[in-house]
Design a protein around this nucleic acid. Structure first.
Length: 212
DNA sequence: CACCAGGCAAGTA
DNA sequence: TACTTGCATGGT
């Protein structure tokens, strides 16, 4: 199975090339984006981030100082703005209290502790936690999203409906842990899902994964 | 016009 | 544990 997964990765990389994730300037911006992109297209998230950037508000302290009503107005383009304003605040409180808003300090923690801490924040679930761990903090965790499940179950690597941990274990058992690899792999899966594999519920005929 | 995007938590059974 | 529902804008 390790060889099959490696082949899938090589195939995707050969087709699409490096994806340059996460598209953000700073680790903190990755954290903000990870929360804003929950069930939301990145295009909309970019608009919200741009607003925050324009107002020079992309720092933990400044964002935390805003009223929820103000913050939700600013991030409006990202959708779900009321609940995401709360979730951002929940994260900021944790981040400031535990790490003083310092991504470099947080990075020193070990993966399993950090993961547990993130998951204890209301509004941060498995994927958001792992996106932060991998793309903001440089930890080698495999990020599982809806595309990962749908694409790989459709291609019969595992059955449909498995929970997050099971899918993550599958990938981490069948790869060598590597920040670079996990960074690129997840981004390539999203690229494949967006552009080719899942449009109109039809089975894709030009999918690179079909070139066995 | 309908559909859905780089989820998550709360409620129900 | 296993479903269901609310959350919301913007692109296709």
């Amino acid at each position: 199975m390790k060889q099959r997964i490696a082949k899938v990765y090589r195939s995707l990389y050969a087709s699409f090339g490096p994806q340059h994730w996460w598209p953000a300037g700073t680790p903190f911006e990755v954290m903000v984006g990870a929360i804003l992109t929950q069930n939301t297209s990145w295009n909309n998230v970019e608009k919200a981030i741009a607003v925050l950037h324009k107002h020079k508000l992309l720092s933990p302290v400044k964002l935390d100082k805003l009223r929820n009503s103000k913050l939700s107005r600013l991030i409006r383009p990202a959708g779900y703005y009321n609940i995401k304003a709360k979730r951002l605040k929940n994260f900021l409180k944790f981040f400031l209290k535990k790490y003083g808003g310092d991504t470099g300090l947080m990075r020193k923690g070990d993966v399993s502790s950090l993961r547990q801490e993130l998951l204890s924040v209301n509004g941060i679930g498995n994927e958001t936690a792992d996106s932060i761990l991998l793309y903001a903090l440089g930890k080698p965790v495999f990020v599982v999203d809806a595309y990962t499940r749908r694409i790989f179950s459709r291609h019969k690597f595992f059955r449909d409906g498995l929970d997050y941990q099971t899918v993550q274990d599958f990938f981490e058992k069948n790869t060598v842990p590597s920040v670079k690899l996990y960074n690129e792999f997840h981004a390539l899966i999203v690229k494949l899902g967006k552009d080719y594999c899942l449009k109109n519920k039809s089975r894709c005929t030009i999918c690179p994964l079909n070139n066995k």
